[in-house]
Every structure is written in C-alpha cells, then in structure tokens.
C-alpha cells in the first residue's frame, strides 16, 4: 500500500536511511528468505543405538555396584573375595587399556607407569586408612536417610556423567565425586571396616576406571565395545534377578527401552520436526511474568 503511494521508491531493510515507509514496514520479498528445518539431521538407527549404549551401560554399572553392596550387606560376599576379584579385573583392564590403542594414548599424554602405580597405592592406602573411620562415620544417622542420600547421589552421577564430549550439563569431576560420596555413604552401613574398604575400592573401579577403558574401547575397537556392553548389561540383569525378580525385569526393560526404544522414537519424531528460520529476530519473552501468576 505504501509502495503504491510512493512509486519508484524501493524499500530497503535498513533504518539508517530516511525512507518514506513506517519503521515496521515490510514488503512482499520478506518471506523469500524463509528456510525450514535447516539444522535437521538424518540419523541412522544403529548408529544412534551405538551411541546411546553408553547410557544403558552406565545404568548397568550403577546397578551392578548396588547389587554387590547388597551382597556384602547380607554377608553373601566376603570383602576379600570382592577385593581380590576387583584387583584381578583391574589388572586385566589395565593391560587391555594399553593394548587397545597400542600405547598411543599413553605416549601422547606422557603419563608414566610409575605415576599409575603411585595413584593405585594412594587409592588403596587412603581407603584402607580411612575405612575404620568410614565405618563409624554415619552411625548415628538413620539408615533410611543414608539410602535416600545414596539414591539421590547415584541419580546425580547418572545425570552429570559425561556421555559425550560436548554436553552442556556434564561435569566428569562432579559425577565422579557424587558417586564416591554415595559409595562412602553406603560403605558406612556395612558391618566391618574391611567391607567398607572393599566397597570403596569397588566404587573406584566401577565409576572411575571402567568408563575410561570403555571410552577407549569405543573409539578404537567398536566391536569389542558392543560385546563388552552387552556382557555387562546381561550380567547386571542377571545379578539383579538374583536379588529380586521384579527389579531384574524392570532393569532389563529399562535397559532395552534406553538402548532400543529411545533411538527409534528419536528417529520417528525427527520426521515431525518443523522449524522455520528467517530474517527476523525470534521472539523471546524476557518480561517478568510473575505478576500474572498472582
């Protein structure tokens, strides 16, 4: 209408020049720049399953740890056995960790074997030294409080775990700290100081060392990663079944859901994505809306 009134004057989308149009005027070329779904990605189902396996994997790890603790609490598992098995498995894992990439990662990071040994000694010594203290630490606090706290902490561990390298909320140190906190809480409920020691070392192996190995496997030997993941998942379901059938079934369903159903849902819902992008600034509500809530 305005263009009709000013024939020969072509509208430009600038405000620094005087034009015979109101400031909020646009002409018909405005929608030419409309784009749709420019950032949409096409996923392949199995690659998504491959990536999301880590989530299921971490869940399985947590459940294995909890079940091990439960065994210890019931006296079905001696701390010596747990510590011995853990030591054996971590030695195997340590060898595998170097074999997987042929010593390339160790060469790049410049970390010596002496440093590794020192870390291991620090872990073991500190845990062993503090284990009597850990046993009496929460004596006066009720068991329910400890369980609730451990549950929340393990949940936080799952939430903050670094599943991929570019995640906003992830914080590897926070997730590890929270897991250790939970393990100390749980260990303080056990009958002996040796039990506490075994539980905390087990927590270090499960929450700190195992993800390192898994990540390296995933980047270098994907088949091995898939096999190990499957193994751990099945093992976790099996040990959970040995505790409670319902829990085992629920865990199995949850693992299946996370690793198979969720990727499927993602791909299905991707079809319904409808984003529009254009030369406009998207509306953002920055106003304080709390007055409408009153």
């Amino acid at each position: 209408k305005c263009a009709y009134r000013h024939p020969g004057v072509r509208w430009r989308k600038v405000l620094y020049e005087p034009q015979p149009f109101p400031d909020n005027y646009v002409d018909e070329r405005f929608l030419e720049e409309l784009r749709k779904n420019i950032y949409v990605r096409r996923y392949r189902y199995w690659s998504v399953v491959f990536e999301s396996g880590l989530v299921a994997q971490q869940l399985a790890c947590v459940s294995v740890f909890v079940v091990l603790w439960w065994y210890m609490d019931r006296g079905l598992l001696t701390p010596h056995w747990l510590f011995g098995t853990g030591l054996l498995l971590s030695t195997v894992g340590y060898v595998a960790y170097d074999l997987v990439d042929g010593g390339l990662g160790r060469h790049q990071s410049g970390r010596t074997r002496w440093a590794d040994l020192k870390s291991a000694i620090v872990f073991v010594l500190f845990t062993y030294g503090f284990s009597p203290l850990l046993k009496t630490l929460t004596e006066s606090i009720s068991t329910d409080t400890i369980y609730a706290m451990s549950f929340l902490m393990l949940l936080a561990h799952l939430v903050f775990f670094e599943y991929s390298t570019h995640m906003a909320v992830a914080s590897s140190s926070l997730s590890l700290s929270v897991a250790i906190f939970a393990s100390v809480c749980l260990a303080s409920r056990l009958p002996g100081s040796l039990h506490a020691f075994a539980t905390v070392t087990c927590a270090i192996e499960v929450f700190a060392l195992w993800p390192l190995l898994l990540r390296r496997l995933k980047s270098h030997v994907p088949q091995g990663y898939v096999a190990v993941s499957l193994l751990v998942s099945v093992a976790s379901v099996a040990v959970a079944l040995s505790v409670t059938v319902v829990g085992g079934v629920l865990l199995a369903l949850l693992l299946l859901c996370i690793s198979l159903l969720c990727p499927y849902l993602l791909i299905c819902l991707q079809l319904h994505k409808d984003n529009i992008h254009g030369p406009w600034d998207e509306a953002e509500i920055t106003e304080d809306l709390s007055r409408f809530l009153r």
Partner: peptide, 21 residues
C-alpha cells in the same frame, strides 16, 4: 579445573568425612 583421579578421590573422601563430622 580438571583434577586428576586421585586428587578427586581423596578430596571427595575428605569432604564426606568432614561433612559428617
């Protein structure tokens, strides 16, 4: 800051102990 594993472990252990004491 990115801490080493052992730093993180000992720190968290001490934190837990101090918190409960």
């Amino acid at each position: 800051c990115s801490y080493d594993l052992d730093q993180l472990f000992i720190g968290t252990l001490l934190f837990t102990i101090l918190l409960f004491l």
